[in-house]
Design a protein around this nucleic acid. Sequence first.
DNA 1: TATTGTTATACTCTATAACTATA
DNA 2: TATAGTTATAGAGTATAACAATA
Lengths: 141, 141
Amino acid sequence: MATIAEQSAELRMATFRLARRLRAQKADQALSDAQFAVLGVLYRHGGTRTLTELAEQEQVSAPSMNRTVNCLEESGYLVRTADEVDRRKSNISLTDAGRDVVKATITKRDAWLTTRLRELSKEDRATLARAAELMGGIITQ
Amino acid sequence: MATIAEQSAELRMATFRLARRLRAQKADQALSDAQFAVLGVLYRHGGTRTLTELAEQEQVSAPSMNRTVNCLEESGYLVRTADEVDRRKSNISLTDAGRDVVKATITKRDAWLTTRLRELSKEDRATLARAAELMGGIITQ
DNA sequence: TATTGTTATACTCTATAACTATA
DNA sequence: TATAGTTATAGAGTATAACAATA
């Protein structure tokens, strides 16, 4: 029986390796991780977000986020719209192309993982499903 | 009961979030992920590695790895030693400071995770331990 | 010729400092 | 005066192309 410290080390390594492997699966290879993370935030959020909100969410500086948003705007994945009430703000939202590339990437990542989960027993899949719940609980502490 | 596709999505999200949280824990905040990954390879490998080997292992170009190794050399975490047999090569190895920063970071990450695992039941810990094994199996396919 | 490592160049992501426009 | 966003500047990570030294 492994110690809790040993279990931690194993879980840490397995998590890093699986995350790395999943990250490699993307619909547009030209999209960086930082860029895709922004698209993902907008996709999950649904509506619009300001530059400051995106910077806080991703824990980067405003100028850094500004640059990333510029790239994504040039690529046609999002648009800025001037706020009618507070004219300092610009509301950032996904374009159809932006939504499509997020959906396609999620589909690709899940397809890769689903293929591998299918090869496992029902019990092993249940173990991973329960583990995902537990991992979620650990993070939100 | 969730579908396999739903289980995939949950596992994907939980993996990304836990990896992100773990990555944030490091002994030297000035070390980038790319830099720490190189130190980690050298630490796990034990002996020396050439620039080409490191570039292949991390799946980046040789010039890119050269730059990262330059930074780490300037920081005193690794050294280049000219190969006596094949004089084109330089053997890259960790310094004591390099080993120390890897050990300290691993300790910090595992301590964070161990604290959270201790709060779980024995059964939940066993589930996560088995999940780590399964995740390892998925990756090496 | 092929391999190992490096330099040159360019683009993205990161930061801080300083600036503009608006509240 | 404070806030939202941007520009200026600089350092790090990424790439490809071209080069020197060695095998």
